[in-house]
Design a protein around this nucleic acid. Structure first.
Ligand SMILES: Nc1ncnc2c1ncn2[C@@H]1O[C@H](COP(=O)(O)OP(=O)(O)OP(=O)(O)O)[C@@H](O)[C@H]1O
Length: 737
DNA sequence: ACCTACACCATTTTT
DNA sequence: TGGTGTAGGT
């Protein structure tokens, strides 16, 4: 067989596949086949250039993408995936640390902390530092800041230099203490999985050489969303041979908020002189109309490399705009749309509903349940985030790593063992001064607590020892079963939670997950299972077999494609989101996100907008997203299932007089309709209890309650139709009667 | 130590 | 609207 399979690649793709040596930058537009290029390139290297798969390292954005790539490669060249490294940055980092972490004092079986574990650690830290602790109000902000520093490759010292004020300097101090605590717990947080390998490479040149000499070819997917620490990781790993191949699309950079730098792709040639730049501009995914619409939207962004994405595909159907009264109606319209598409012969797995925020999934979920359309939600509350699952996993982590304080704190009193805050704090300090894990302290018996807590703590240790021994001799599923049994966890759930039933199901599902893990992995130890669990992402759970309609955020949809895409919630303040409205860079990132969403669609694209939406408990009037006005009129139509189309005007008009951030001043009917809403708010209406009002959407009602004042004036209305709702008076489309 | 009630506040997106 | 943190009672 000859590699590559030339008939399945166009000229540019072929060039990207066969340009093997030196730095190569592939600017791959949406749907231009970069997945195919990446795969074929590896096949070409191994099949034609006789490169050993052992010498190849490829980074993907998700574990699922890595698995799919391995499977595809395996089909083409059986046996290839055994020695080839394909994975996410984090998975690769873990692999390196398990092998060589000991060189920088990381024990082989460190715990991996996810965002919630990190948060718990920080909360505990803050509670210990009462006096200064007040300077930092939100542990979440602290956690995100530290994470951001790590992703920016800023060690505490460097972060301190840049700290702008006392609050930030205090955060740096806490960053340092947090690092110490992690070390004490023999744990790494998620960001460390890349930070530590980079540190390892910088301290031990020989280890760096070991890897970079091995990896003659390094490939990176989704390069536009790499952050500085990942870049340092890539640089180190490709340093010896310099055959670095990166693929990305500056127009699809959507993770700037967590430190990703588009500059990596924009300045790549400067960083790597002699780079071969290849552009893939032929789109194989979408219809001409969808591509036309998406191209126009993204053209509103300044500061892009610019590309001319084209397709030979048919014109296809127009983009459809659906307007609804409120989010419930929107959900119902989505359901209607889905049902009509199914009638047309599409399958559920061909349809995705995308939205900006996870909160939007609720209304959709309710309606889909009632409509009995089988669906899956990616993200939101992930299975591994459930309290009961986390409890059991905390037992697992503690068993593998008794120093893991965060896990210990979580479960030492779950189920209740009379070991409360005071007792645990005492045990912790004592253990810390002896430099031993709390479990060992209990074993030594050298601690002074109440008689009851001493007895209970000994009992806890006994259970722990049994589980520890079990973990050494058997696989994960059995250990987890034993945890549930030995601790009488299900009884605890029944006695303390009214919704115990579903929690018990989740506990059982965790056992099933561990069993499934054993079926597919040679190493099914508890440690291996924990590692897998720590690294899974939400999209990894995406199911394409069971024929499910898919609901997920636009971020999660990156890299995927569907026959039909429905994007919900196209409203100012939601998409683009509030927080990005006063910053051009962030606004442009929102636009890229919209672009990513649009370009997921192969044949059908629906855009949905609601006139009202519940936000933080209140109902607010919404105006259509500026992004809608950026779609040329020729590409879009409305009137789906009897819903009125949002009236639109010509592009030129819309651009005219747009403000600095590109918010178009829409003229014509759309503007008129919007003004109708805003007119209400301009009258300074004084609402009093008992006043009769008319609401644009809900009809007549009576004021039941008035709270707050000015911008925050809230009124509760009981409508003649029977419902009672609360509004922000300023935004509500209503007037007194 | 543990439970309940209440006040507060946050909400963007996640490997 | 909801989840979380805390005060006060048992
Ligand atoms: N040479 C080709 N001929 C025909 N179809 C192709 C070719 N290359 C790729 N495709 C098809 O184009 C579609 C998009 O490919 P792929 O998912 O790799 O795009 P992508 O570049 O990763 O897009 P994005 O950046 O938007 O995620 C796929 O369905 C793929 O099968």
């Amino acid at each position: 067989m000859h590699y590559p399979n030339r008939s399945s690649l166009n000229e540019d793709q072929l060039k990207a596949v066969t340009t093997t040596d030196g730095p190569v930058l592939v600017i791959a537009g949406a749907g231009s086949g970069k997945t195919r290029v990446l795969t074929e390139r590896i096949v070409y290297l191994v099949g034609e250039k006789k490169v050993s798969p052992w010498n190849i390292l490829a980074f993907t954005f998700t574990n699922k993408a890595a698995l799919e790539m391995k499977n595809r490669l395996e089909r083409m060249i059986p046996g290839i995936s055994e020695s080839l490294w394909v994975g996410t940055f984090h998975a690769t980092g873990v692999r390196i640390l398990r092998n060589h972490g000991e060189y920088i004092g990381i024990q082989k079986w460190f715990s991996i902390y996810d965002a919630e574990d990190s948060l718990n650690l920080l909360k505990n830290l803050l509670s210990k530092n009462v006096p200064q602790g007040r300077l930092i109000r939100s542990p979440r902000v602290l956690r995100d800041t530290i994470s951001r520093w790590k992703n920016d490759f800023l060690l505490p010292e460097q972060a301190f230099e840049r700290a702008a004020d006392n609050v930030e300097r205090r955060m740096v101090t806490l960053y340092q203490e947090y690092e110490k605590e992690l070390k004490r717990a023999k744990a790494l947080d998620f960001d460390d999985l890349i930070v530590k390998p980079v540190k390892l490479f910088s301290i031990h040149q020989n280890i760096k050489d070991l890897y970079s000499e091995r990896f003659r070819y390094v490939l990176v997917d989704e390069f536009q969303d790499t952050n500085p620490i990942q870049m340092a990781f890539i640089e180190a790993l490709s340093s010896y041979h310099g055959n670095l191949f990166v693929v990305g699309d500056d127009d699809q950079s959507i993770y700037g908020w967590r430190g990703a730098r588009v500059e990596h792709i924009l300045n790549f040639e400067g960083l790597y002189p002699g780079t071969n730049v290849i552009r893939l501009e032929r789109n194989y995914r979408s219809t001409r109309t969808i591509l036309d619409a998406a191209n126009h939207v993204i053209a509103f962004n300044k500061g892009r490399k610019g590309k001319n994405l084209w397709t030979d595909d048919e014109e296809g159907e127009k983009v459809k705009l659906v307007v609804s009264m409120d989010e419930e109606t929107e959900a119902m319209n989505v359901l209607q749309t889905v049902l009509s598409l199914l009638e047309k012969g599409l399958e559920r797995k061909d349809i995705a509903v995308l939205y900006r925020t996870n909160a939007q999934s609720r209304a959709l979920e309710d309606v889909l349940k009632r409509g009995s359309v089988p669906y899956q939600i990616i993200g939101s509350v992930s299975f591994y985030d459930r309290m009961e699952v986390r409890d059991i996993l905390a037992y697992c982590k503690l068993i593998c790593n008794p120093s893991d304080l965060v896990s210990l704190r979580r479960i030492i009193n779950v189920p209740r063992r009379a070991l409360g805050k005071a007792t645990v704090a005492k045990l912790e300090t004592l253990a810390a001064s002896g430099g031993i894990p709390v479990t060992e302290l209990i074993a030594s018996g050298e601690y002074d607590v109440g008689a009851k807590q001493k007895k209970k703590s000994k009992e806890f240790l006994k259970t722990f020892r049994v589980l520890e021994r079990l973990a050494r001799s058997t696989h994960a599923a059995e250990v987890i079963e034993a945890i549930i049994e030995q601790t009488d966890y299900l009884k605890y759930l029944k006695e303390n939670y009214p919704d115990a039933e579903s929690r018990i199901e989740n506990a059982e599902e965790l056992v099933a997950a561990a069993e499934a893990f054993a079926d597919t992995h040679e190493d099914a130890t508890l440690r291996a299972f924990l590692e897998e669990v720590a690294l899974v992402s939400d999209v990894d759970a995406l199911d394409e077999e069971k024929g499910l309609l898919t609901l997920m955020t636009l971020h999660n949809a990156k890299g995927l494609e569907f026959e039909c895409v429905i994007i919900a919630g196209l409203e100012e303040g939601l998409f683009p989101h509030h927080s990005s409205l006063d910053n051009l860079d962030e606004l442009e990132e929102e636009r890229r996100l919209f672009y990513v969403g649009m370009t997921r669609a192969k044949k059908y694209l629906y855009l949905s907008f609601a006139n009202m939406r519940r936000r933080m408990g209140f109902i607010e009037g919404e105006t259509p997203s500026r992004f809608l006005a950026e779609i040329p009129e020729r590409c879009i139509e409305g009137d789906i299932e009897g819903v009125e189309i949002w009236p639109r005007t010509e592009m030129g008009d819309e651009l005219d007089g747009s403000d600095e951030l590109g918010a178009p001043k829409v003229k014509g009917a759309a503007e008129r309709k919007r003004l109708e809403f805003e007119d209400y708010s301009q009258e300074e209406v004084v609402y009093t209890v008992g006043m009769l009002i008319y609401h644009q959407a809900y009809g007549k009602g009576i004021v039941r309650k008035v709270e707050g004042s000015g911008k925050n004036l809230r009124v509760t209305i009981l409508f003649d139709r029977g419902s009672e709702r609360k509004f922000v008076a300023l935004h509500a489309p209503m007037r007194p009667l």
